[in-house]
Amino acid sequence: MIAIGITVALTELLGSFGLSGGLLSVITYTILAAGTFGLLSVLALFLVWWERKVAGHMQQRFGPMRNGWHGWYQTLMDGLKLLQKEDILVATRDKVVFFWAPVMCCIAAFAAYIVIPFGDGLIVADLNIGVLYIMAITTFTVIALLMAGWGSNNKYALLGGMRSAAQVVSYEVPMVASILVVVLYAGSLSTVDIVNSQSGNFLNWNIFRLPFGPIAFITFLIAAVAEANRTPFDLAEAEQELVAGFNIEYSGMKFAMFFLAEFINLFTVSAITVILFLGGWHGFAFIPTFVWFFMKTFAIVFLLIMVRWTYPRMRVDQLMEFAWKVLVPITFLNIIVAAIFKHFGWYWEL
Protein backbone atom coordinates (compact mmCIF):
# COMPACT_ATOMS: atom_id res chain seq x y z
CA MET A 1 0.00 0.00 0.00
CA ILE A 2 1.18 3.47 -0.84
CA ALA A 3 -0.55 5.45 1.85
CA ILE A 4 -0.76 4.40 5.43
CA GLY A 5 -4.16 3.11 6.43
CA ILE A 6 -6.29 5.68 8.19
CA THR A 7 -6.59 3.42 11.23
CA VAL A 8 -2.85 3.04 11.53
CA ALA A 9 -2.33 6.75 11.07
CA LEU A 10 -4.89 7.58 13.73
CA THR A 11 -3.39 5.06 16.12
CA GLU A 12 0.05 6.56 15.65
CA LEU A 13 -1.32 10.06 16.12
CA LEU A 14 -3.10 9.15 19.33
CA GLY A 15 -0.12 7.09 20.44
CA SER A 16 2.01 10.20 20.21
CA PHE A 17 -0.15 11.69 22.97
CA GLY A 18 0.99 8.91 25.25
CA LEU A 19 -2.02 6.62 24.97
CA SER A 20 -1.43 2.94 24.68
CA GLY A 21 -2.97 -0.50 25.01
CA GLY A 22 -6.71 -1.15 25.10
CA LEU A 23 -7.65 2.48 25.73
CA LEU A 24 -5.82 3.53 22.56
CA SER A 25 -7.75 1.15 20.34
CA VAL A 26 -11.05 2.00 22.04
CA ILE A 27 -10.52 5.71 21.39
CA THR A 28 -9.26 5.11 17.87
CA TYR A 29 -12.22 3.03 16.86
CA THR A 30 -14.70 5.33 18.58
CA ILE A 31 -13.39 8.24 16.53
CA LEU A 32 -13.52 6.17 13.36
CA ALA A 33 -17.02 4.93 14.11
CA ALA A 34 -18.22 8.45 14.76
CA GLY A 35 -16.59 9.62 11.56
CA THR A 36 -18.15 6.83 9.53
CA PHE A 37 -21.51 7.43 11.13
CA GLY A 38 -21.35 11.11 10.31
CA LEU A 39 -20.29 10.43 6.75
CA LEU A 40 -23.02 7.87 6.24
CA SER A 41 -25.72 10.08 7.70
CA VAL A 42 -24.77 12.87 5.34
CA LEU A 43 -24.60 10.38 2.50
CA ALA A 44 -28.05 9.04 3.28
CA LEU A 45 -29.47 12.55 3.38
CA PHE A 46 -27.87 13.24 0.04
CA LEU A 47 -29.09 9.99 -1.47
CA VAL A 48 -32.68 10.63 -0.44
CA TRP A 49 -32.52 14.04 -2.01
CA TRP A 50 -30.82 12.70 -5.10
CA GLU A 51 -33.32 9.93 -5.58
CA ARG A 52 -36.18 12.38 -5.31
CA LYS A 53 -34.53 14.69 -7.79
CA VAL A 54 -33.80 11.96 -10.29
CA ALA A 55 -37.29 10.52 -9.93
CA GLY A 56 -38.74 13.99 -10.33
CA HIS A 57 -36.86 14.83 -13.47
CA MET A 58 -37.51 11.42 -14.90
CA GLN A 59 -41.20 12.11 -14.48
CA GLN A 60 -40.83 15.64 -15.80
CA ARG A 61 -41.37 17.17 -12.41
CA PHE A 62 -38.94 19.20 -10.39
CA GLY A 63 -38.73 17.17 -7.24
CA PRO A 64 -37.89 19.09 -4.06
CA MET A 65 -37.37 22.75 -4.85
CA ARG A 66 -38.13 24.71 -1.73
CA ASN A 67 -35.30 24.38 0.75
CA GLY A 68 -32.13 25.83 -0.61
CA TRP A 69 -30.88 25.54 -4.16
CA HIS A 70 -33.13 22.92 -5.78
CA GLY A 71 -34.15 21.83 -2.32
CA TRP A 72 -30.73 20.54 -1.30
CA TYR A 73 -31.49 20.45 2.42
CA GLN A 74 -35.02 19.16 1.99
CA THR A 75 -34.13 15.81 3.52
CA LEU A 76 -32.62 17.52 6.54
CA MET A 77 -35.88 19.38 7.07
CA ASP A 78 -37.84 16.17 6.60
CA GLY A 79 -35.65 14.57 9.23
CA LEU A 80 -36.27 17.45 11.60
CA LYS A 81 -39.98 17.15 10.98
CA LEU A 82 -39.94 13.43 11.69
CA LEU A 83 -37.97 14.14 14.87
CA GLN A 84 -40.76 16.37 16.15
CA LYS A 85 -43.52 13.97 15.24
CA GLU A 86 -45.49 12.16 17.81
CA ASP A 87 -44.37 8.59 18.10
CA ILE A 88 -47.62 6.77 17.54
CA LEU A 89 -47.56 3.40 19.22
CA VAL A 90 -49.96 0.60 18.61
CA ALA A 91 -51.48 -0.58 21.86
CA THR A 92 -51.23 -4.23 20.92
CA ARG A 93 -47.62 -4.14 19.80
CA ASP A 94 -44.91 -6.38 21.14
CA LYS A 95 -43.12 -3.68 23.08
CA VAL A 96 -39.56 -4.94 23.08
CA VAL A 97 -39.51 -6.21 19.53
CA PHE A 98 -41.28 -3.16 18.17
CA PHE A 99 -38.80 -0.83 19.82
CA TRP A 100 -35.63 -2.64 18.82
CA ALA A 101 -36.48 -3.36 15.20
CA PRO A 102 -35.47 0.04 13.77
CA VAL A 103 -32.38 0.12 15.96
CA MET A 104 -31.39 -3.30 14.72
CA CYS A 105 -32.01 -2.23 11.16
CA CYS A 106 -29.70 0.75 11.55
CA ILE A 107 -27.00 -1.27 13.28
CA ALA A 108 -27.01 -3.81 10.49
CA ALA A 109 -26.82 -1.06 7.90
CA PHE A 110 -23.96 0.80 9.57
CA ALA A 111 -21.92 -2.16 10.70
CA ALA A 112 -21.06 -3.21 7.16
CA TYR A 113 -18.91 -0.11 6.77
CA ILE A 114 -16.17 -1.49 8.98
CA VAL A 115 -14.71 -3.34 6.04
CA ILE A 116 -15.61 -1.07 3.16
CA PRO A 117 -12.58 0.77 1.83
CA PHE A 118 -13.56 4.26 0.71
CA GLY A 119 -10.15 4.76 -0.80
CA ASP A 120 -6.61 3.59 -0.59
CA GLY A 121 -6.13 3.00 3.12
CA LEU A 122 -9.45 4.58 4.03
CA ILE A 123 -10.81 1.56 5.83
CA VAL A 124 -11.68 1.09 9.45
CA ALA A 125 -10.45 -2.48 9.75
CA ASP A 126 -9.12 -4.70 7.04
CA LEU A 127 -10.61 -7.97 8.25
CA ASN A 128 -9.30 -11.06 6.53
CA ILE A 129 -12.89 -12.31 6.25
CA GLY A 130 -14.21 -8.95 5.00
CA VAL A 131 -16.66 -10.13 2.38
CA LEU A 132 -17.98 -12.86 4.58
CA TYR A 133 -18.47 -10.29 7.31
CA ILE A 134 -20.44 -8.00 5.00
CA MET A 135 -22.69 -10.83 3.94
CA ALA A 136 -23.28 -11.85 7.52
CA ILE A 137 -23.92 -8.42 8.91
CA THR A 138 -26.21 -7.14 6.15
CA THR A 139 -28.40 -10.16 6.64
CA PHE A 140 -29.22 -8.78 10.06
CA THR A 141 -31.52 -6.39 8.25
CA VAL A 142 -33.89 -9.22 7.59
CA ILE A 143 -34.14 -9.97 11.29
CA ALA A 144 -34.93 -6.34 11.90
CA LEU A 145 -37.66 -6.37 9.25
CA LEU A 146 -39.08 -9.56 10.63
CA MET A 147 -39.07 -8.03 14.07
CA ALA A 148 -40.83 -4.97 12.76
CA GLY A 149 -43.39 -7.13 11.01
CA TRP A 150 -44.05 -9.26 14.03
CA GLY A 151 -43.87 -6.53 16.63
CA SER A 152 -46.37 -4.28 14.89
CA ASN A 153 -49.14 -6.81 15.37
CA ASN A 154 -50.54 -5.90 11.99
CA LYS A 155 -51.29 -8.35 9.23
CA TYR A 156 -49.90 -6.15 6.50
CA ALA A 157 -46.70 -5.66 8.49
CA LEU A 158 -46.42 -9.36 9.15
CA LEU A 159 -46.86 -10.15 5.47
CA GLY A 160 -44.20 -7.60 4.65
CA GLY A 161 -41.80 -8.99 7.21
CA MET A 162 -42.35 -12.56 6.04
CA ARG A 163 -41.89 -11.57 2.44
CA SER A 164 -38.66 -9.81 3.15
CA ALA A 165 -37.35 -12.74 5.16
CA ALA A 166 -38.06 -15.18 2.37
CA GLN A 167 -36.69 -12.81 -0.21
CA VAL A 168 -33.43 -11.90 1.50
CA VAL A 169 -32.66 -15.46 2.45
CA SER A 170 -33.29 -16.64 -1.10
CA TYR A 171 -31.24 -13.95 -2.73
CA GLU A 172 -28.37 -14.51 -0.34
CA VAL A 173 -27.57 -17.69 -2.24
CA PRO A 174 -26.99 -16.26 -5.73
CA MET A 175 -25.32 -13.25 -4.16
CA VAL A 176 -22.77 -15.35 -2.34
CA ALA A 177 -22.33 -17.53 -5.37
CA SER A 178 -21.54 -14.47 -7.47
CA ILE A 179 -19.09 -13.24 -4.88
CA LEU A 180 -17.40 -16.62 -4.78
CA VAL A 181 -16.23 -16.17 -8.33
CA VAL A 182 -14.51 -12.97 -7.35
CA VAL A 183 -13.03 -14.53 -4.26
CA LEU A 184 -11.78 -17.44 -6.31
CA TYR A 185 -9.72 -15.14 -8.47
CA ALA A 186 -8.62 -12.73 -5.78
CA GLY A 187 -7.62 -15.57 -3.50
CA SER A 188 -8.76 -13.66 -0.46
CA LEU A 189 -11.87 -12.65 1.43
CA SER A 190 -10.40 -9.35 2.47
CA THR A 191 -11.98 -6.40 0.70
CA VAL A 192 -8.63 -4.63 0.43
CA ASP A 193 -7.02 -7.65 -1.19
CA ILE A 194 -9.91 -8.00 -3.61
CA VAL A 195 -9.58 -4.37 -4.66
CA ASN A 196 -5.82 -4.65 -4.94
CA SER A 197 -6.15 -7.70 -7.16
CA GLN A 198 -7.89 -5.40 -9.66
CA SER A 199 -5.19 -2.76 -9.74
CA GLY A 200 -3.65 -1.40 -12.89
CA ASN A 201 -5.56 -1.13 -16.12
CA PHE A 202 -9.33 -1.03 -16.01
CA LEU A 203 -9.35 -4.26 -17.98
CA ASN A 204 -8.17 -5.78 -14.75
CA TRP A 205 -11.49 -5.02 -13.09
CA ASN A 206 -13.29 -8.17 -12.21
CA ILE A 207 -16.20 -7.40 -14.49
CA PHE A 208 -13.84 -7.57 -17.49
CA ARG A 209 -11.19 -9.92 -16.22
CA LEU A 210 -13.28 -12.79 -14.97
CA PRO A 211 -14.55 -15.34 -17.42
CA PHE A 212 -18.20 -14.36 -17.82
CA GLY A 213 -17.52 -11.43 -15.53
CA PRO A 214 -20.54 -9.45 -16.78
CA ILE A 215 -22.81 -12.34 -15.87
CA ALA A 216 -21.44 -12.49 -12.36
CA PHE A 217 -21.79 -8.72 -12.18
CA ILE A 218 -25.42 -8.71 -13.32
CA THR A 219 -26.46 -11.59 -11.11
CA PHE A 220 -24.75 -9.92 -8.19
CA LEU A 221 -26.43 -6.61 -8.93
CA ILE A 222 -29.87 -8.22 -9.19
CA ALA A 223 -29.34 -10.04 -5.92
CA ALA A 224 -28.05 -6.84 -4.38
CA VAL A 225 -31.16 -4.90 -5.41
CA ALA A 226 -33.22 -7.64 -3.81
CA GLU A 227 -31.12 -7.41 -0.65
CA ALA A 228 -31.63 -3.67 -0.54
CA ASN A 229 -35.41 -4.14 -0.85
CA ARG A 230 -35.83 -1.86 -3.81
CA THR A 231 -38.15 -2.01 -6.80
CA PRO A 232 -38.56 -4.35 -8.66
CA PHE A 233 -37.99 -6.38 -5.52
CA ASP A 234 -39.46 -4.07 -2.90
CA LEU A 235 -42.03 -6.63 -1.88
CA ALA A 236 -41.50 -6.03 1.80
CA GLU A 237 -43.07 -2.62 1.66
CA ALA A 238 -45.02 -3.03 -1.59
CA GLU A 239 -47.02 0.14 -1.29
CA GLN A 240 -49.88 -0.93 -3.55
CA GLU A 241 -50.38 -4.32 -1.96
CA LEU A 242 -49.28 -4.07 1.65
CA VAL A 243 -49.70 -0.31 2.01
CA ALA A 244 -46.27 0.10 3.62
CA GLY A 245 -45.44 -3.43 4.61
CA PHE A 246 -43.25 -3.83 7.65
CA ASN A 247 -43.12 -0.16 8.55
CA ILE A 248 -46.86 0.41 8.37
CA GLU A 249 -47.15 1.06 12.12
CA TYR A 250 -43.96 3.05 12.51
CA SER A 251 -44.02 6.78 12.79
CA GLY A 252 -41.75 9.63 13.67
CA MET A 253 -38.11 8.87 14.30
CA LYS A 254 -38.58 5.12 14.21
CA PHE A 255 -39.79 5.40 10.66
CA ALA A 256 -36.92 7.75 9.88
CA MET A 257 -34.48 5.12 11.10
CA PHE A 258 -35.90 2.55 8.71
CA PHE A 259 -35.72 5.09 5.97
CA LEU A 260 -32.12 5.94 6.80
CA ALA A 261 -31.20 2.28 6.88
CA GLU A 262 -32.83 1.73 3.51
CA PHE A 263 -30.73 4.37 1.84
CA ILE A 264 -27.57 3.32 3.59
CA ASN A 265 -28.24 -0.19 2.35
CA LEU A 266 -28.58 1.23 -1.13
CA PHE A 267 -25.16 2.78 -0.81
CA THR A 268 -23.76 -0.38 0.76
CA VAL A 269 -24.78 -2.65 -2.08
CA SER A 270 -23.46 -0.17 -4.61
CA ALA A 271 -20.17 0.09 -2.74
CA ILE A 272 -19.82 -3.67 -2.55
CA THR A 273 -20.54 -3.93 -6.26
CA VAL A 274 -17.80 -1.42 -6.95
CA ILE A 275 -15.36 -3.18 -4.64
CA LEU A 276 -16.03 -6.60 -6.07
CA PHE A 277 -16.42 -5.89 -9.73
CA LEU A 278 -15.44 -2.36 -10.68
CA GLY A 279 -11.99 -2.11 -9.22
CA GLY A 280 -12.85 -0.36 -5.99
CA TRP A 281 -10.84 2.80 -5.59
CA HIS A 282 -8.62 2.14 -8.59
CA GLY A 283 -8.70 4.60 -11.41
CA PHE A 284 -6.22 6.48 -13.45
CA ALA A 285 -4.77 9.96 -13.49
CA PHE A 286 -4.00 11.92 -10.39
CA ILE A 287 -7.55 12.00 -9.00
CA PRO A 288 -7.55 10.83 -5.35
CA THR A 289 -8.60 7.26 -4.81
CA PHE A 290 -11.66 8.01 -2.67
CA VAL A 291 -13.02 10.25 -5.45
CA TRP A 292 -12.83 7.32 -7.81
CA PHE A 293 -14.57 5.13 -5.33
CA PHE A 294 -17.40 7.57 -4.81
CA MET A 295 -17.75 8.26 -8.51
CA LYS A 296 -18.15 4.61 -9.32
CA THR A 297 -20.49 4.02 -6.40
CA PHE A 298 -22.71 6.93 -7.32
CA ALA A 299 -22.87 5.62 -10.86
CA ILE A 300 -24.23 2.34 -9.53
CA VAL A 301 -26.59 4.17 -7.17
CA PHE A 302 -27.85 6.18 -10.12
CA LEU A 303 -28.46 3.00 -12.08
CA LEU A 304 -30.40 1.53 -9.17
CA ILE A 305 -32.48 4.69 -8.86
CA MET A 306 -33.28 4.52 -12.56
CA VAL A 307 -34.28 0.89 -12.17
CA ARG A 308 -36.50 1.66 -9.24
CA TRP A 309 -38.50 4.29 -11.07
CA THR A 310 -38.79 2.39 -14.32
CA TYR A 311 -39.79 -1.16 -13.57
CA PRO A 312 -42.93 -2.72 -12.16
CA ARG A 313 -42.77 -4.88 -9.09
CA MET A 314 -42.50 -8.63 -9.23
CA ARG A 315 -44.89 -10.93 -7.47
CA VAL A 316 -43.66 -12.81 -4.46
CA ASP A 317 -43.76 -16.28 -6.01
CA GLN A 318 -42.19 -15.03 -9.23
CA LEU A 319 -39.48 -13.48 -7.15
CA MET A 320 -38.70 -16.79 -5.48
CA GLU A 321 -38.91 -18.59 -8.76
CA PHE A 322 -36.48 -16.17 -10.30
CA ALA A 323 -34.03 -16.60 -7.47
CA TRP A 324 -34.07 -20.38 -7.32
CA LYS A 325 -34.76 -21.33 -10.90
CA VAL A 326 -32.78 -18.71 -12.75
CA LEU A 327 -30.21 -16.95 -10.63
CA VAL A 328 -28.98 -19.89 -8.57
CA PRO A 329 -28.31 -22.19 -11.55
CA ILE A 330 -26.63 -19.42 -13.50
CA THR A 331 -24.38 -18.39 -10.65
CA PHE A 332 -23.48 -21.98 -9.76
CA LEU A 333 -22.66 -22.70 -13.36
CA ASN A 334 -20.60 -19.56 -13.38
CA ILE A 335 -18.60 -20.76 -10.38
CA ILE A 336 -17.83 -24.07 -12.05
CA VAL A 337 -16.81 -22.39 -15.28
CA ALA A 338 -14.74 -19.86 -13.40
CA ALA A 339 -13.04 -22.62 -11.44
CA ILE A 340 -12.16 -24.47 -14.65
CA PHE A 341 -10.82 -21.31 -16.23
CA LYS A 342 -8.81 -20.58 -13.15
CA HIS A 343 -7.41 -24.06 -13.04
CA PHE A 344 -6.15 -23.90 -16.59
CA GLY A 345 -5.11 -20.31 -16.27
CA TRP A 346 -7.36 -19.03 -19.06
CA TYR A 347 -7.49 -15.46 -17.90
CA TRP A 348 -5.29 -12.49 -18.12
CA GLU A 349 -3.43 -10.75 -15.39
CA LEU A 350 -2.11 -7.42 -16.49
Binding site: Q60, D234, Q240, W309, P312, R313, M314
Partner: peptide, 16 residues
Protein backbone atom coordinates in the same frame (compact mmCIF):
# COMPACT_ATOMS: atom_id res chain seq x y z
CA UNK B 1 -52.70 0.17 -13.49
CA UNK B 2 -49.01 0.61 -14.04
CA UNK B 3 -48.76 2.15 -10.61
CA UNK B 4 -50.68 -0.66 -8.97
CA UNK B 5 -48.36 -3.16 -10.56
CA UNK B 6 -45.45 -1.16 -9.17
CA UNK B 7 -44.18 1.05 -11.99
CA UNK B 8 -44.57 4.56 -10.72
CA UNK B 9 -43.33 6.62 -13.61
CA UNK B 10 -45.94 5.78 -16.29
CA UNK B 11 -48.58 7.33 -14.06
CA UNK B 12 -46.92 10.69 -14.31
CA UNK B 13 -46.50 10.33 -18.07
CA UNK B 14 -50.15 9.47 -18.49
CA UNK B 15 -51.23 12.43 -16.41
CA UNK B 16 -48.98 14.68 -18.44
Amino acid sequence: TAMDIGALTPFLYALR
